[in-house]
Structure formats: structure tokens, C-alpha cells
Nucleic acid binder design. Structure first.
Lengths: 234, 234
DNA sequence: CGTGCTTTGTGAAATCGTGCACAAGGGATC
DNA sequence: GATCCCTTGTGCACGATTTCACAAAGCACG
């Protein structure tokens, strides 16, 4: 077994796909599938088989030629590589519509990211309970982050408050941010930020819809191609 | 003025940035800024100025050398290119926690994507009213899509129901899907799909957190670099 | 134990995306 | 209208990512 050191750097594009593979592998494990080939995994993930092999090769040489990958073991390795061998509590800033939905959503607690706290600037919201968590005042952010050993913050505020939320999160010691506000954040380069923007996604779809509409004549030709593929993106 | 034809194909990476530029430009317009340079826009969007210029050049030659881009005009052009010169009603499948939050979220109605309908498979939910929309039975999907001239569907079901939701949406005539379920969809290649997955985003952040933790010694060096940048991604 | 079938792991080529650097264009000023 | 300054638009080189293609490796079966 190779040393437990930091391996060669994994390309960002690969990092973004590992969670997808992980999800699929967990499903397969639950269906009592023991082995999966790069071909099979590629099919399920909607990507090219060579890409799957190259992606997995960054983790190490965990496949067996002629056989494929052992599902359980691969799950274990991807988890380890992604840092999912322990929980990462998160703190949610903003207890509005979205913040409350996120807190109640299974996607956090069920998947290793328990809600370690929830804050809001509005005194009227403070001390109300959402999904089992009491909303605390924005000022207590440093205390909550420190007490919970929290390093990931989620911004669910309106756009206008997002930068302030980010500044406060960073001041409190958070080093990764998931930003749901439609606003580009300015942060030090040591902080990791991911942005999820509903409107952006819809506008990208709108672009493609318009494109289809404009080319509706030539689209007749393409429409014949009705074969299914996984993960049709864009 | 150039003909109103379909221009050369715009790269996906550019399409994904246009909504960001648009958002920033709208803010600038509201702040009564008339002109913006590629440098200024780049700063606000957290990207390279050359990239901004190249991205915008795909739309046409709408800048003025020595001056920059006229904000209002650029807003108009990006809107047109993205197909945002009219509304795109959407239908939401799944009226659970997430579906209801989405319906109530300003991100839809306020930005040209009004909720044209909402369906759920659970008879107990049908006919209840969420954010001004009455939940309808799943079976009425074709009727709703046809009546509303809807081409974009949003999947807010559990993972297990997502593929069925996609199949029904496509059968009803929808050609673009925004998928919030943690599940890779299998769809014909004529359908555009975008996936938003909370768990995936958090796991990517987890990877980076772990990486920071592993290299905490050498991180001391990098931490000195405390300059701010926009849109620190990943 | 050798042969054949299967699937991995990975060089190498092709494609895509980014950023530099600069010529060309436009406005302002005298 | 000539000159200067500024900023766009883009050719080009570079880096990242994807895909191909195949040798190396493991298993099964005779």
C-alpha cells in the first residue's frame, strides 16, 4: 500500500466528477454490485470510459485488469480522497426562504455536512427554531464557528448582504464558502468559494432553448438521433 | 447593424459567464454607470480582462476602442443572445421541501422565469397552494406544459423519482431540464440538462479543505498572500 | 502452464480554454 | 486635421482537459 502522503495534484475537472462517481458507486453497493468496469461506470455517469479510468488513476491504481473496480473499495478510496472520512459541520448565514429550505433539506445532515449553526441579521428571526436548529444572531458567528470547529460556511442571504456575510465568515475563521447569493464575492486567495446560482443556470438553459428555436428547421435533422445518453449537459 | 441571424457558435465556457456579466452590468446600470471597460468588468466578475473581451467579441463588436462598452447596450445584447428578451415559464416537478422553496424564491419570478405550474405525485399535496401556485397532480404535466407553452422543467424530487420525472417532462414536450436531484439523468441528446447538486458542491469544498489541512505547514507560506481577488473559485 | 479474452493504466494526439501582447481604431485636445 | 492616449479585438502560445489507442496485466479455461 502506498504511503498516506498527499498524492500528485488532482485536476479540478476530476475533483468535480469524483462526487458523481461516488454517488453512483454507493447506489451500486446498495444494489449488491461488487464490481464495476470503467465502461459501466462511464455509462452511469454519462461520460467517456477513458475519462473515468484517467480520473480514477489519480487516486492510485485501484482497478484489476480484466475485471474492473471493486465497488466497496473504490467508495472507500474516493471518500478518503475527498476528505469524507469525517463530518464537516457547516454554518448557514441567512435564515430566509432559502436558508430555511437548506437547513431542512436532507442534503446536508444526511451526507456528512451537519448544520452546526444558523445565523441571521434580523432580530425577529433570532431564536426561532428551524429544522431543529435555533437561529442565532449574526454577531455570534465567531463563537459558533470556533465552538463547532466549522470551516465551511453557506451564504443564503440576499445579494446585497452576501459580501458582508463572506467577510464575517472569513473573519470568524471559515476557509470555504458555498455561495447561493447571485453575487460575485471578493475573498482572499486562500479561501475556496463555490457559487450556486439558480438564475445563471436558467439563463444558460434559456440560451440553448433559443438556439434550438432559431435552428428549428435544421433541428429536424438532429431530432432523428433519439438515442439516450447519460448526463447530457448544457 | 449586423443581420439578426444566428452568429458563430459561442463556446460553453463563455455562455456560462455571460449571465455573470449580465448581472454585474445590470447593477452598474442601476448605479447610473454609463460605460465600463473590459478591465472594470473583469475586476467585478473576478476574471481576466482579455477573457472578458474575448467573451464579448463572440456577441459582436459592441465596444468602443479607447472608451469601453456602453452598459445599457451591452445589457441589451447579452439579453438578446441569452434569449432573455421574453419570459420562459418553468414547471416544477416535486413540491417537497425544495420544490416549495424554489417556488417561493425570488430567483424565478423576478428574473424572467415565472413558475407556470407545479406538480407532485402525492395526492395529499395536490391542490394545496404554495407561493400563489396550486399544486397539480403529476398526470396533468402534459396539459400544463402545453397550455403554458413551457419548455423548461425543474426537477425537485428525491433521486429515486428523478428519472421518471425527466421522462414525463420530456414526453410532455419540455426540452430543457434543471435537475436538483442527486442523480444523473438519462435523456435524448436533443434535451439540455443542467444539474445543481448541493452535496457535490460541498464535497468539492471538502476536498479543498482537506488539502489545506494536509499542507498546513506549507500553507503558512501561501497565507501571506492576503490580497483580495474576485471569484476565487474552487 | 499456456492461450485467449477482458479491462486497466497511460503515453500521445487532439481539442478546448486562457492569457499575453500588440496592432488597429476611436476620441480628445490643440 | 495631426498627435496622443486609451481601450478594444484578436493572433498566438501556452496550459488544461479530453479522447484515442494500445501495451501490460489479470483471470479463466482447457
Amino acid at each position: 500500500m502506498p504511503p498516506h502522503r498527499t498524492r500528485r495534484r488532482i485536476p479540478e475537472a476530476t475533483v468535480a466528477r469524483l462526487p458523481i462517481y461516488l454517488q453512483i458507486l454507493i447506489e451500486q453497493a446498495e444494489a449488491d454490485v461488487d464490481n464495476v468496469s470503467s465502461e459501466g461506470l462511464a455509462e452511469l455517469a454519462g461520460v467517456n470510459a477513458a475519462k473515468v479510468r484517467k480520473d480514477l488513476s489519480y487516486l492510485g491504481s485501484y482497478g484489476t485488469r480484466g475485471v474492473g473496480y471493486e465497488v466497496e473499495y473504490l467508495v472507500f478510496q474516493i471518500r478518503r480522497e475527498l476528505g469524507l472520512d469525517h463530518e464537516w459541520p457547516v454554518v448557514i448565514v441567512g435564515a430566509g426562504n432559502l436558508g430555511q429550505a437548506l437547513a431542512g433539506y436532507g442534503g446536508f445532515n444526511g451526507r456528512g455536512f451537519p448544520v452546526g449553526g444558523m445565523v441571521d441579521i434580523d432580530p425577529a428571526k433570532v431564536d426561532t427554531v428551524v429544522a431543529g436548529a435555533r437561529i442565532r444572531p449574526l454577531e455570534e458567528l465567531p463563537k459558533i464557528v470556533a465552538a463547532g470547529g466549522i470551516s465551511i460556511g453557506v451564504i443564503a442571504t440576499p445579494a446585497a448582504a452576501a459580501q458582508d456575510a463572506a467577510d464575517r465568515l472569513i473573519a470568524a475563521g471559515v476557509t470555504s464558502i458555498l455561495n447561493f447569493a447571485p453575487m460575485v464575492l471578493s475573498v482572499p486567495s486562500t479561501i475556496s468559494v463555490r457559487k450556486v446560482d439558480l438564475a445563471v443556470e436558467l439563463q444558460i438553459l434559456s440560451y440553448h432553448e433559443q438556439r434550438k428555436a432559431n435552428n428549428s428547421h435544421s433541428a429536424q435533422l438532429h431530432a432523428v438521433n433519439d438515442e439516450r445518453r447519460r448526463g447530457a449537459s448544457a
